[in-house]
Design a protein around this nucleic acid. Sequence first.
RNA 1: GUACCUGUAGCUCAGUUGGAUAGAGCGUCAGACUCCGACUCUGAAGGCCGAAGGUUCGAAUCCUUUCAGGUACGCCA
Length: 569
Amino acid sequence: MDMKARVAAHLLTTLHTAFGDAATDADALKNLLEVPPDRAMGDYAFPCFTLAKALRKGPPMIAQALADAWQPCDFAQAACVNGYLNFFLDREQLARETLSAVLAAPGKWGSTDQGAGRTVCLDYSSINIAKRFHIGHLSTTMIGHSLRRIYQHLGYNTVGINHLGDWGTQFGKMICAYKRWGTKEQVEAGGVDALMALYVRFHDEAEKDPALEDEGRAWFKRIEDGDPQALDIFNWFKQLTLTDAERVYSILGVTFDSYAGESFYNDKMDRVVTELREKGLLVESQGAYVVDLEAYKMPPCIILKKDGATLYATRDIAAAIYRHDTYDFAKSLYVVAYQQDLHFRQVFKVIELMGYDWHASLEHVAFGMISYEGQTLSTRKGHVLYLEDVLRRATEKALAIIEEKSPGLENKPEVARQVGIGAVIYADLQNNRIKDIDFWWDRALNFDGETGPYVQYTHARCCSVLRKVTGELAVTDWAALADDEAQMVLLLLSRFPDVVQEAALRNEPSMITRHTTLIAQAYNKFYYEHRILDDEPGTVAARVMLTKAVQDVIKTGLYLVGIEAPERM
RNA sequence: GUACCUGUAGCUCAGUUGGAUAGAGCGUCAGACUCCGACUCUGAAGGCCGAAGGUUCGAAUCCUUUCAGGUACGCCA
């Protein structure tokens, strides 16, 4: 049991003593405990205001009564101030318990088995065929990747799904362009860029010769009908795109369990349409078939076009059902930009109306738009920023700093990659995901202050200190960690598991990014105020333990948001 | 027009289910390396939490109205 839980349990006993029956339990009480704004007020506090009505007493009186009834114990003291009962954790106990717990299982701090036997599906990244990976894909990729690691940390089985955008008439047009103007060698050499060039040329030529549009549609029809030649070319284009994306994924360390994209669901939509019809949800409207959602203050969800063809929503409903059938998920998350908010609200509602009780486990994890130096990204206008360029420049910047500050470092290119990429990922996962991001080079390449490299630096610094420890450590003098700076570090370490919980609950990786940064800041302050290796043996042992714990938790925190933690940089 | 999201320091943003004196980084100014890694640390300046009402013992947080910006709204995905 952690210190906070022990305080809550003891507070429960105290409530019984002071006021007889207390209609609550220790868990509920633990949630009522809060962190005072200033550490001088205590480590945790219980606001007595909520009890005022039930007990018909003023909050200060309640706090006083609780303080009087508080039985001395070895882990915390209590004091009342202005209607709050403030708790001061025993400093030695906090040090002993926190560090023992962290160091008992390296890399596991904050992990649980609460998700054992349960599966979370995560739909993220979801790239389009024949398009290059650009900065706009970063958020979905990294938020999804991070959430996946967070859920794994909590014992869940996870399924990472890259829902490929691999269906639509544009692919018929692309084949048409390839057949007319492309060559195998040229496309093999140029990859996705060559495909893009063909697509652009198609549009230019089609303006002069509208017949091309029909030719493109005809090629798409051949894909739909399973024509071998069309499928071969299409699958080849698909492979080229995946190879291109895989290069970026491998730099970022991102992986998937499934690449089942839009085309995968082609033969799974009839069932949805039939089912909707049987359940009386499908109504004819202006020639199309829709599910009316007026009762829920939403526009109708279009299932079938006038020509009988299916749509995006049809496909997503089929995909949701397929995923539930296949993975029996406890949660299914869609890491998709907020522009699609209405779409997902409609889809989820239709699934609810179909009578599937698991509709409540579907969640749209929305995130903000990314723009580039104040302007909306636009491939057509040439205002694009490819992710590889961003990662490359960040790596170059990191390498330049390494050359300047640690010229003797081994493995410089690899470390530069870790640091440069760390800066980019950190910037993406630093703030609440709903915020729009405007990308500026100078901001992305800033390595000072609250940045990935700052946190990585602190980790490397811990590693450096630990490397200098020689021989056996003496018996730990926990009391040596009673100073304010060490205590701040310990408190933050002790709260890390709660932060992981909250991050999962809110599907918000930034909570972990920020808390990990707080730990780094607190440790750097501690580092400046205290000598670690030159002191009494028992004190050295204690400070080394603290350093080891900080190193481990920072590494875990960074891992959970998808950032590597080099030991030297 | 309707729905959703966002307005907190010059800039970028934190701020837990309402709680004590609203915080951090960047930038600015002033400091700290004969010492375990200065990609570090200390200090200063900087605020009508978009605005107005309301609920409450208590509101940046909840409700209403309103202003500003963004996004989405039937046959694309």
